[in-house]
Every structure is written in structure tokens, then in C-alpha cells.
Computed example of a mutant assay.
Amino acid sequence: MIEIRRLEDKCNHCMMCVRECTSGVFRNVDGKCMVVDPLTCNLCSHCAAICPQSAIVHSGLDQTQIAAAKAKLIDPEVYAEIARTRRSVRAYKDKPVPRDVLEKILDLAKYSPTASNTQNVEYTVVGDRALIKSIADRIFSYGARFADWTQTRKGKLAFGALNLAAPKANLGRYVEGMDYYKEQAASGKDLILHNAPALMLIHAPAKAPFACDNCNIAAANITNYAHALGLGTCYIGFLTLTLKLNKGMRRELGIPQGNKVFVSLVMGWPEYKFKRVTARKEPSVTWIGAD
């Protein structure tokens, strides 16, 4: 059972914990902030983070992780530059990513917000280069066989119907370029996982509310932080789709039963650096009641 206490000798009854506690654990009782219903706590830790007096003791939280925020280090221009200059990297040096660096990235990812503070995001990290190559080869083979099938009589009819049903997917571009892609693959180029030294799969219970959102929020933090550390990343939609359909590959990668992979990332040291910020179209925005 969770124990939540307020240290009387430190508390100044500023009511910040009451204001921040959406679960109703902390409440204003006759002008004093009181712990009323600890069973409703969802372990968001806002009470400990907001308290100016460090007067909250919470058995459900690791007290060693609760430390003063270094607000002076938050430079909006630095973050903006990270977001603007991060690129999808598809060429990596033949150099492993040390485990302590990967652990550093995942340690930061755990601070990513999750719906109702479920903290249900899980990770599978693959550094086995032979396994990474095997997965890439198999996925490319699936794609090549699919492209060949679309050239058959039945395949042309089915593929035409598929394009009509999902025109935005623009699947034709992959089929039309397959001869070139096969030549590239035959020369040793990895068009799927890009010969990356590390593969990171981000997954969560398939039926959990907002599981997809939770995983993608974590992925955004991972890719930006990796970029700040000098690493490159790339989202691999083909692998995410394959893992959705291929139960055997999920077992091979140790994805827990009942979990779904929502994000697949390759990661490594970029072979070269991008020198400029690229162009982006202006966002489509609808303003309602904004000055």
C-alpha cells in the first residue's frame, strides 16, 4: 500500500500540491493541505515536483530521483536547433553504439509523459548485427516478392484496387522502383535497416488506451536526444508493419505476448553530417478565439 505523508515541520501550506493533484489525494481541509485519499494516486509525482519545501514523502516514488530542476539549462534556442537539424539518417559508420550510451538515452526516455501516467512503454534494443541484417534481408525479400506478384494478372487487379482504396499510401512508387532497389540490394546495400549498428523497438500493451501515443512521444524524445549526443536515427515503418503481421518475428525479437510494436528505430553514428536546415511547408492551422 502506498504511504504518502506531509512533513509538518517543512510544510508551509502553500496549497501547491492541492492545486496540482488531479487525483484528489491532496485536498484543502480547513485551510491546510492534507493527504485525504492516497489510494487514488496515479504516481504522477507532481506533488513532489511542485513542493517548494520538499515536504512530501511518497513511498511509491524513488526519492533519490527527486532533485532540483536546473531551469537555467533550458535554452529554447538550443532545443529549437535540435528539432530543426535532426534528420532521418540512413548511412552509418561501422561502429557500435556503447551500451552505456543507449542506457543514457533510455533513462531520459522514461521521463516522457504517458496517458494517466501508466508508464507502460517498453523497449527492446538489438545490437546483434547478424540479427539486424537477417531481419533487413527478410523484409526486403517480402517487398520484392510482393512487387513481383503485382505484375501477375491477379496481382495487377488486386494492386489496382488497393491503390484506389488507399491512394495516399502511394505504394506504386515502391513497386515501380523495385528493379533499381534489387540492384542496390545485390551490391550489398541495406535499404531497410541501413546497416545500422543498433535497432530499438518501442512497444506497449496492444489494448492499452493511448499506447501508440505513449510510444511515439517517447520516440520523439529519443530521436532528439540521440541527435544532441551526435547519434543518428531513422523511423522504420516497414519493420513496424512487418512486426504487426509476422508473429514469428515478434517471438524472435522477444516482444512480450500482448504487446504491440508502435515504433521501430535504427540508431548509430552518422557516416556524414548534414550541413543545413532543410525547407518545410507551412503548417495548416485553424485559429479559434486566439488573438
Rank of each mutant, 00 (worst) to 15 (best):
P209H: 09
D62M: 08
H58E: 08
C44G: 11
D30H: 13
E77Q: 15
L73P: 01
Y92I: 00
V36W: 03
A49Y: 06
R6A: 08
Q65A: 11
Q63G: 10
T286S: 09
C215M: 07
K110G: 05
I222R: 00
A186W: 02
R153H: 09
T223P: 02
T152G: 06
T124R: 14
Q184E: 12
C44R: 10
H13V: 10
L253S: 07
V25C: 04
C215G: 05
R84I: 03
F210W: 09
F159W: 05
I192G: 01
A48N: 12
K72M: 12
W149P: 00
I255D: 05
R145M: 07
K133E: 15
H58A: 10
R173D: 03
L253W: 04
K207P: 00
G258M: 07
Y225E: 07
I4N: 00
P256R: 12
L245F: 11
E176S: 13
A68G: 05
A130I: 04
E252R: 15
G143V: 00
E8C: 02
Q184C: 08
A68W: 06
F146D: 07
R87G: 05
L199W: 00
S141G: 06
R173V: 15
C41R: 04
H194D: 01
A136Y: 02
K32Y: 11
P167I: 06
C44H: 06
A55S: 13
G177T: 14
Q257E: 15
V121H: 03
G230N: 13
L106N: 10
V121S: 05
A161R: 11
R5K: 15
S134A: 13
N216E: 14
V97R: 02
V89L: 06
Q53C: 04
L131H: 04
Q257C: 02
K189V: 08
P256H: 06
I222V: 15
G254N: 09
L191T: 07
T114L: 08
M249G: 02
L61F: 11
K244L: 13
I135T: 01
N12W: 06
E176H: 06
A144S: 11
R90W: 01
G289K: 10
G258P: 02
A186Y: 02
Y235T: 06
E252S: 14
D30T: 09
K93W: 00
R138G: 09
L43F: 12
I202V: 15
R276A: 14
K244H: 12
H194C: 06
I132L: 07
C51R: 04
S134G: 09
Q257S: 14
G24P: 01
Q184M: 15
P256S: 08
E282K: 13
D148E: 15
E271K: 03
K247V: 12
A48Y: 09
Q63D: 10
M200E: 05
T40P: 01
K275E: 14
N120I: 07
K133Q: 12
I202T: 08
V25E: 02
C17A: 09
G60D: 08
Q151E: 14
K189T: 11
K168E: 13
